[in-house]
Amino acid sequence: MDDTIALAGLPMSLRWEALPTGWSPEPLRIEAGPGTDLFVDPAGDATYLNAPRLLGTPPEGDFQLAATVSVDFAETFDAGVLLLWADEQHWAKLCFELSPQGEPMVVTVVTRGPSDDANAFLVDGDKVRLRISRIGTAFAFHASVPPASGSGAARWSFVRYFDLGASAVRIGFEAQSPTGKGSAATFEDIRFVPERLSDLRDGS
C-alpha cells in the first residue's frame, strides 16, 4: 500500500516518521498526543524522539520552505514545527512554542548528538510564518510575524544559521506536547521555492 502523502505547494511526497493521534491535509493539521517531543538533553538526562512528524526528501540544491503556523496552545512547550531531519543524531527544528511563562515564542533546537536549544523572540499573536532555507551545505532559520492591518509587508527576522553535520536531509512538519495532554498545530500557505536565499539578514 502506498503510504505517501502529497501536499499542495511541495514538489516531493511525504511520509509519517512517527504517527500522530490525528491529522488532516487541507490545511495541514497535525495532532500530537501527550508527552510527545523531539529533544536530546545535553546533560544526558533524557532523550525524546516520539513527536509525530511528516517528512519528505527535497530536490537537490538550495531551497526555501515556509509555512504559516498556529498552535492549539494549552501547556508549556506545546509547539508547531518546521523540521530538518537526517537521523536521530542530526536534526533541527524551528518552533512556534508556548514558553513556561505562557507566551508564544519562536524557538530553535539544533541537534548534533545532544540538542542545542535557544529562544528567539516572543510573538504577539496567534500565528507566525516560519522558513527553513538551505544555502549550500548550511541551513538558515527565519520567522516573520504578520503585520498589523495597513502597516505594510511582513519582514523576515533572522533566527539561526548552522551546519547540521549531515548532507542528506528530509524536511517537513511536526507537532508536540511534551508536558501536556496533547496539542495540535496547523500549517497554512505552505510554499517551497527552489532558489538560494539572497541575503541572510536583510529581512526580505
Rank of each mutant, 00 (worst) to 15 (best):
Met1Gln: 12
Thr4Cys: 04
Thr4Gln: 13
Thr4Gly: 04
Ile5Leu: 15
Ile5Phe: 08
Ala6Ile: 11
Leu7Thr: 05
Leu7Gln: 06
Ala8Lys: 15
Met12Asp: 09
Leu14Gly: 06
Arg15His: 13
Trp16Asn: 04
Glu17Ser: 14
Glu17Arg: 15
Glu17Gln: 15
Ala18Gly: 04
Pro20His: 09
Thr21Val: 08
Gly22Lys: 06
Ser24Ile: 03
Pro25Arg: 15
Glu26Val: 12
Glu26Asn: 15
Pro27Ser: 12
Pro27Cys: 14
Leu28Asp: 09
Arg29Gly: 01
Glu31Phe: 02
Pro34Met: 14
Thr36Gly: 08
Asp37Cys: 03
Ala43Ser: 15
Gly44Thr: 10
Gly44Leu: 05
Tyr48Val: 02
Tyr48Ala: 12
Tyr48Gln: 03
Ala51Asn: 04
Pro52Met: 09
Pro52Val: 11
Arg53His: 10
Arg53Cys: 08
Leu55Asp: 03
Leu55Pro: 08
Thr57Lys: 13
Glu60Ala: 15
Glu60Met: 01
Asp62Ala: 08
Leu65Val: 07
Ala67Gly: 04
Ala67Cys: 01
Ala67Ile: 02
Ala67Glu: 00
Phe73Glu: 00
Phe73Thr: 02
Glu75Gly: 03
Thr76Gly: 00
Thr76His: 02
Thr76Val: 07
Phe77Ser: 00
Gly80Phe: 10
Leu84Ile: 12
Leu84Asn: 00
Trp85Ala: 00
Glu88Ala: 14
Gln89Pro: 01
His90Glu: 04
Trp91Gly: 00
Trp91Val: 10
Trp91Ile: 08
Ala92Val: 07
Ala92Met: 07
Ala92Thr: 06
Leu94Gly: 01
Cys95Lys: 08
Phe96Met: 05
Glu97Asp: 04
Glu97Asn: 03
Glu97Trp: 10
Ser99Gln: 06
Ser99Tyr: 09
Pro100Ala: 11
Gln101Trp: 10
Gly102Arg: 08
Glu103His: 11
Met105Ser: 09
Met105Glu: 13
Val106Asp: 14
Val106Asn: 12
Val109His: 03
Val109Ser: 05
Thr111Met: 00
Ser115Tyr: 01
Asp116Lys: 07
Ala118Cys: 08
Ala118Met: 05
Leu122Thr: 01
Leu122Ser: 06
Val123Met: 07
Val123Leu: 05
Gly125Arg: 08
Leu130Pro: 03
Ser133Met: 01
Ser133Asn: 03
Arg134Lys: 15
Gly136Ile: 10
Phe139Thr: 03
Ala140Asp: 08
Ser144Asp: 03
Ser144Val: 02
Val145Ile: 15
Pro147Asn: 09
Pro147Leu: 11
Pro147Phe: 09
Ser149His: 11
Gly150Glu: 06
Gly152Tyr: 13
Ala153Met: 11
Trp156Thr: 00
Trp156Tyr: 10
Phe158Arg: 07
Val159Pro: 02
Arg160Asn: 05
Asp163Gly: 01
Ser167Leu: 14
Ser167Cys: 01
Ala168His: 10
Val169Thr: 09
Ile171Ser: 04
Ala175Phe: 08
Ser177Asp: 13
Ser177Leu: 13
Gly180Trp: 10
Lys181Asn: 11
Ala184His: 12
Ala185Asp: 10
Thr186Ile: 07
Phe187Asp: 06
Glu188Gly: 02
Glu188Asn: 02
Ile190Lys: 05
Ile190Asp: 09
Arg191Asp: 13
Arg196Gln: 13
Leu197Met: 14
Leu200Thr: 01
Asp202Met: 01
Gly203Val: 11
Ser204Val: 10
